Computed example of a mutant assay.
Amino acid sequence: MTQRGGGRRGKRSDAHRDAAPLGPAEQYVKAKDTCLRLLTMRPHTRAELHQALVRKEISEEVADSVLGRLDEVGLVDDAAFAEVWVRSRHTHQGLGRRALAVELRRKGVDDEVAAEAVAAVDEDAEESRARELVRKKLRSMGAVDETAKIRRLVGALARKGYSQGLAFRVVREELRRVGEDAAELDDAVSD
C-alpha cells in the first residue's frame, strides 16, 4: 500500500523540512493547538508543555505567551496537577512520599508546590499503604527463607519511596502478624 507523498507515515517530507520558518502568528496557533491537544489527553505541567513546544521549534516568546494565557484561563495549574498526581500515584501505584516528590520534580513542578502536594499523604496513610503492599507481596512469597523475605519486602518498599525506618518496622510487624519470627529486624527497628 502506498501513501500519499511517497514518504512513510510520521516522517517529515522534504517540502516540510525546507519550508520557511513559521512567523509569530503561525507559531502561536501551532503552540496553542499543540498544548490543547496534549491537555485533552491528560493534565500536564507547565514545564511538560514548554518542553513539547520546544520540540516543535516554537520560540520562547511565543511559548511563554501561550502558556501564560493557558495559566490565566486555568488550563495549566501545577498545584492542581501535583495534587491529582500524588493522590493517584499513592493510591494506585503505592508510591511513598519520597518517590512522589521525585516524580513531581521530574515533571517540572516547583519544589514548594510538590512539597505541599506530597504533604497531603500523611504518615498514617503512608504506613497503611506500605502494609497493604507488604501483605500482598507476602501472599505470593511461599516458602522463602526469612532473610530473603525481609530483603525482598524492604527492597520493594524502598523502590516505592518509603523510608528505611518505616520499611523495616512495617515488614517486622507484618511478618510477626503472620507468625514469623522477624528477629533479624529487631536491631534495625527501635520502638
Rank of each mutant, 00 (worst) to 15 (best):
G6S: 12
R12W: 03
S13K: 12
L22Y: 04
G23D: 11
Q27G: 03
K30G: 08
A31R: 01
T34S: 03
R37A: 09
R37S: 07
L38K: 13
T40F: 04
T40V: 05
P43G: 15
L49F: 12
H50N: 13
V54F: 02
K56G: 12
I58R: 00
I58P: 00
E61N: 02
V62D: 04
V62G: 05
V62W: 00
A63W: 10
G68K: 03
R69I: 08
D71S: 15
V73L: 13
G74M: 14
D78V: 11
D78H: 13
A79T: 10
F81V: 09
A82H: 08
E83C: 07
V84H: 15
W85G: 08
S88H: 12
S88A: 15
S88F: 14
R89P: 02
H90F: 13
H92E: 15
G94L: 10
L95S: 07
R97L: 05
R98G: 10
V102L: 11
E103A: 12
L104R: 05
R105L: 00
R105K: 04
R106K: 09
G108W: 02
G108K: 06
G108E: 10
D110K: 06
A115T: 01
E116K: 06
A117L: 06
A120S: 11
A120K: 03
V121G: 05
D122L: 01
D124W: 14
A125T: 06
E126P: 07
S128N: 14
E132I: 07
L138S: 12
G142E: 10
A143M: 09
K149G: 09
R152A: 10
R152D: 06
R152V: 06
R152M: 08
L157P: 06
A158M: 10
Y162M: 12
Y162A: 06
Q164H: 08
A167Q: 01
V170F: 05
V170H: 01
R172N: 09
E174D: 07
R177D: 11
V178E: 14
G179S: 05
E180C: 07
L185G: 02
D187F: 13
A188E: 07
V189G: 03
